[in-house]
Design a protein around this nucleic acid. Structure first.
Lengths: 347, 347
DNA sequence: CTGAAAGCGCTTACAG
DNA sequence: CTGAAAGCGCTTACAG
C-alpha cells in the first residue's frame, strides 16, 4: 500500500527529526530529548545533535509537536475593537511576555458579535489555543460562566471584569482613579461636573460612575450629578457633548469622560458651540492614548499602565497554564495627567 | 507497552473522529469524507454522521488535520506598528475574507526589528503559516528576495512595495493621489507648498515625493519645493512642522503630509506658533484615520480604501495558495477628502 | 460508496 | 544515557 502523501507543498519538503537522527547517528528519541530535555543527554550527544541540526537545516514541525503534546502554544486575546488604539500597547506587553516564553498571541477582534467570540473560544477545546485573555466583557456569558469555579481555567481578564464571574484579573482601580479625577475637578472649583460614561452595563463603567457619584456626594455636590451614556467612540462623545452643552439652564462647567476618544468628541462639540476649553469648560479623558497629546487643547486624562497590564495578564495566564499558583487579582496604579483641557471654572 | 499519553489536559478529553465513527456505525474514513467531501458519501451516511457528530459533540482536532494536510490555515500579516490605527481597517478586511475561507490571521508586529520579521517568516517553512501579507517593506530583503521569481510564493504586499522586488501587490497609486492633492492646493492659489514625507527610503514615500515634485514642476513651482522627512508619527510631524514654520523667510503656505498623524502634528506646531489654519496655513494629511475628523480643524486628507485593500490582498493570497492564476498588481482608487484644514492662502 | 491501514512528524513510558 | 515502538487525531490511495 502506498503512503498517503499530502498534496505537494510549495515548500521543498523540510528535513525532519529522522534526517537529524540519521546525520547524528542516533535515534529520533535522542534528538527529541536533546532538544526538549538537554539534561537527559550526554554532552557529547548533545553536540552531535546540534551539529546535525545545523547540517541538515532542521526546524521542528510545530503542528506535529503540538498534536503530540496536546498544546498549541497560542494565546488568544479577545478585544471589542481592534481599531481602538487603547489596546495596542496592551497587546505589545502581552506579546513581549508570550514570545519570550515561546507562545504566540492571536488577536481576536470580536466587534460585538457573539458568534465571533464563540468562534475564538472554540479554539480552546480543539487545542488551537491554550488560553484566552479577555480585554472585553462584551461576550456571551455562557462562554465564561463556571470558569471561575475551575481554578485552572486558562482564562484571564485584563482591564475589564464581569460583575458576577470572578476570573483572574489584571486591572486598575476604576473607582479610585475616577474619584481622584473628580476630586481634582472639585478642587479646581467646579460644582457642576457631568460624566460621559461608556456602556452603562459595563462593569468598569459602573465602577467609574460609582466613583463619580460618591465623590460628588462626599463633596456635597450630589445634586449636580449628571451621567450620559456613550460607547467609548469619538462620535458618541461628540453627540453627548452637544446634548450636555446645549442645555443652557444647567450647563456643566466640567465633563469627565470614560475614554479619550469621547473626550475628544466633547472637545469638538464645545468648539462647535463656541465654548472655550478650559476657560468655559474643563474636559477630562481616560486612557492617555497618543492622540490626547495632539488634540486642541491637549487633554487632561487618566493614564493606565497599558504595557504593564498586558505583561502581567500574560504572566498570570502562563502561570495558570504551568499549574502554578497565582494571585487572582492584580490592581495596577493609574496616574492623572494634567494637561491643558482643565482649569478653574469661569465665575 | 503502554500508550505514551500526553500530559493530562485541563479540558476533558474531547471526542475524536473515532467516537463519531462508532456512534455512526461507520469507519473514521467515512466520517472524514462526510466532512471534507460530502459528495463522495451517500445522503443516508452523511445524515447518520451528522447526527453522530451532534450526539457526541465532536469538533475536529485542527492540529491533527493540519499535520496531515501539511497546512496551517493561518495567514500572517506583517506590519510595522500595531498602534497605528491606519492598519486596523485593513486587518478587518483581511480577516473578513480569511474567516470566510476558513483561515485565521496572525498579526505580526515587526516594530522595525529584523529578528521579529524573520521569526514570522520562519512560520512558513515550519508549516505554522501558509502565507504572508506584507504591510511593510521595512524587513530584511533576504527574506523576500527571489520570492518574485517563484510564481507561487505565498507572499502578497499591501499598500507598500519594494523598489526592486516584484511581489504580487494591492495598493493605491501614490504618485497620482499625491499629484491630485498638490494640484488641489495649487488650484487654491498656493505657491509655496512643503511636504513632510515618511522615511525617504520607503518606496511609497518616493512615489509620493515624485508626484509632489512633478506636479509642482508642471505648475512652474519647482523652485519652492521643500521636502522634510518624518516617520509617519505625530511627534515627527510636530517637529518638522515647527522647523518648516519657524523659517520666516520662506515659510510655506501649505504643507502636504504623508500621514494624518504627521499632519496632526503639524497642526499642533502651527497652533503653538499662532499660525491660523486654514487662514495662514493649509494642511493636507494622508490615510483618513478616525482622528482626522476630530482634530482642529478637521483635516483635509487622502483617503485610501483600507477595508477593500485588506480584502483584496487576502483574496489574492488565497488565490495563490489555491494555485489559481492571479492579477499580480491591483491598484485601488483614492479620494481627496476636503475638510476644514485647507483654504485659499492669505495674500 | 465504504473500510482497513498507512502515515504526517513528533514525544515519551518502558526496557535495557 | 539511549533506542524501539506506540500513539497523538486526522486523511487518503487503494482495494473491494
Amino acid at each position: 500500500m502506498l503512503k498517503a502523501k499530502p498534496a505537494a507543498k510549495r515548500t521543498l519538503s523540510m528535513p525532519t527529526i529522522k534526517d537529524v537522527a540519521k546525520a547524528a547517528g542516533c535515534s529520533t528519541a535522542t534528538v527529541s530529548r536533546a532538544l526538549a530535555n538537554p539534561e537527559k543527554v550526554t554532552e557529547a550527544t548533545r553536540q552531535r545533535v546540534a551539529r546535525a541540526i545545523a547540517e541538515v537545516g532542521y526546524a521542528p514541525n510545530v503542528a506535529a509537536r503540538n498534536l503530540r503534546r496536546a498544546e498549541s502554544r497560542t494565546i488568544v486575546t479577545l478585544l471589542p475593537d481592534i481599531s481602538n488604539p487603547f489596546f495596542s500597547e496592551i497587546i505589545n506587553g502581552m506579546e513581549e511576555v508570550a514570545h519570550q516564553a515561546g507562545y504566540q498571541v492571536l488577536i481576536g477582534d470580536c466587534e460585538r458579535d457573539p458568534a465571533r467570540a464563540e468562534a475564538y473560544f472554540n479554539l480552546l477545546p480543539t487545542n488551537q489555543a491554550d488560553g484566552i485573555i479577555l480585554l472585553t466583557s462584551d461576550i456571551p456569558r455562557a462562554l465564561v460562566s463556571h470558569a471561575d469555579a475551575r481554578v485552572d481555567s486558562p482564562l484571564v481578564m485584563a482591564c475589564e471584569s464581569f460583575s458576577d464571574i470572578d476570573l483572574p484579573t489584571v486591572a486598575i482601580d476604576n473607582y479610585q482613579a475616577t474619584a481622584h479625577a473628580i476630586d481634582y475637578l472639585v478642587s479646581l472649583g467646579h460644582e457642576r461636573i457631568a460624566s460621559v460614561s461608556g456602556p452603562a452595563d459595563n462593569p468598569i463603567c459602573c465602577d467609574r460612575t460609582l466613583g463619580y457619584r460618591d465623590t460628588l456626594a462626599a463633596r456635597g455636590l450630589s445634586g449636580s450629578a449628571r451621567v450620559v451614556e456613550g460607547d467609548f467612540g469619538f462620535r458618541s462623545g461628540y453627540q453627548q457633548g452637544l446634548a450636555l452643552l446645549e442645555d443652557t439652564v444647567a450647563r456643566p462647567s466640567a465633563i469627565f469622560c470614560h475614554s479619550d476618544e469621547m473626550a475628544i468628541g466633547v472637545l469638538k462639540a464645545a468648539r462647535q458651540l463656541g465654548i472655550g476649553v478650559p476657560e468655559a469648560l474643563s474636559v477630562v479623558g481616560f486612557d492617555n492614548i497618543g492622540f490626547s497629546e495632539y488634540c486642541e487643547p491637549e487633554l487632561t486624562t487618566v493614564s493606565q499602565p497599558r504595557h504593564e497590564i498586558g505583561q502581567q495578564a500574560m504572566r498570570m495566564l502562563l502561570s495558570i497554564l504551568a499549574g502554578e499558583g497565582v494571585v487572582r487579582r492584580q490592581i495596577l496604579s493609574t496616574q492623572l495627567i494634567v494637561r491643558k483641557s482643565t482649569g478653574r471654572p469661569a465665575d
